[in-house]
């Protein structure tokens, strides 16, 4: 029995479903990310878990308890809002103590608890600060502390770092991960930033048009995406149309048109592929090398990025360039070589 269980949940407002038959299992203590472009339904899903939206169908259960009929104020979840929703008329201390009223703690215990959480988010001594005197990063920490102090079962984070600038965002990523390890509760993060999802989470669900396309750990997601959308959404990827020719033991052979005949490990094919199927061959730019022989092309553009650089290589018979990541090639015409074991076969679009 998983800790957070989402079973066949659908939701539509007026029009096509925003969340479409979603199934998801999240374990206790997991740092889990919902990743997808804006409008993919990830925030709606999060709001259904928090109780702000009601699913049209399906059930949401936390720790074995069905949540559908439970109002937000009685759910064992707490949320860090994208806008942070810091109460403007309360200071930092009162914002954090807001959700502890019902516990009726004695004053010194309440103070100790708030101060402990302030220390956790590294806002020591700022309890008396007015809400409008906080920087963006501080607001984010107050929102986090206010949700964490209740010691709920699940913390929901709606694009929590989206409003911060790049440097602060990167620093907060490290810290968020450390805080999650320390408090040990389940974190469910919604983000459109693939880097954030991959670097923070134990597992990631990629959402697209209301559906979950793939759930996997970051490495698997990067190396073995299940479809073109996932592959394209996470990092750069080269795609080639190909036909599956033969599967012999652990090796598959494909005809990739201008790339010629290529072989790849059979396990790199998506399940259920048959001989003569049209497939989509995918490979990351860092697994394409400049070599003495291979597919001929011309470097059309390059971006210097330090140790490695990015190149757009124009290949005859193909309109899009091939993306290559590596060190600079010799001048003039180049040849491309593909690392066979890094080639993966995805279902064709059509």
């Amino acid at each position: 029995m998983s800790f957070l269980s989402i079973a066949n949940v659908s939701k539509s407002f007026s029009g096509p479903p925003v969340v479409n038959d979603v199934r998801l299992e999240v374990a206790r203590g997991e740092f889990f990310a919902l990743l997808g472009p804006s409008g993919c339904g990830k925030t709606t899903l999060l709001r259904m878990i928090a109780g702000f939206e009601t699913p049209d169908s399906g059930t949401i259960a936390i720790d074995g308890e069905a949540m559908n009929a439970v109002p937000p104020n009685l759910r064992p979840t707490n949320m860090v809002f994208q806008s942070y929703a810091i109460f403007p008329h309360l200071n930092v201390f009162d914002n954090i103590a807001y959700g502890l009223r019902k516990l009726k703690l004695p004053k010194d215990q309440l103070r100790a608890r708030v101060e402990a959480i302030l220390a956790t988010v590294r806002l020591d001594g700022l309890g008396g600060r007015a809400a409008d005197q906080l920087s963006g990063g501080q607001r984010q920490r107050v929102a986090l502390a206010r949700a964490l102090v209740r010691e709920s079962k699940i913390l929901l984070l709606d694009e929590p770092l989206g409003a911060l600038d790049k440097r602060l965002r990167e620093a907060m990523q490290v810290e968020l991960r450390a805080i999650q390890r320390k408090v040990g509760i389940t974190f469910l993060l919604v983000t459109h930033d693939q880097e954030e999802a991959l670097s923070l989470s134990d597992r990631v669900a990629v959402m697209h048009q209301g559906r979950i396309l793939q759930v996997a750990d970051p490495r698997t997601l990067y190396e073995r995406p299940s479809c073109r959308e996932v592959a394209g959404f996470i990092g750069e990827m080269n795609f080639f149309h190909a036909t599956l020719r033969e599967i012999a033991g652990e090796t598959a052979t494909v005809n990739a048109g201008i790339l010629g005949i290529l072989t790849l490990p059979a396990v790199n094919l998506a399940p259920g592929m048959k001989i003569d199927d049209h497939i989509l061959l995918a490979i990351r730019p860092e697994h394409v090398r400049f070599a003495a022989s291979g597919v001929a092309g011309d470097v059309a553009a390059s971006t210097f990025l330090g140790e490695r650089s990015h190149f757009h290589v124009k290949v005859a018979g193909r309109s899009e360039p091939v993306f290559v990541s590596g060190s600079a090639p010799p001048a003039g015409a180049v040849h491309l070589e593909f690392t066979p074991e890094k080639l993966i076969g995805l279902p064709s679009d059509s």
């Binding site: 104020n73 979840t77 809002f81 929703a85 109460f87 959700g99 209740r150």
Partner: peptide
């Protein structure tokens, strides 16, 4: 911000 009222519900009120 409507989130303020939601945040209050989220925090148990």
């Amino acid at each position: 911000d409507k989130n303020l009222e939601e945040a209050s519900a989220d925090l148990g009120e």
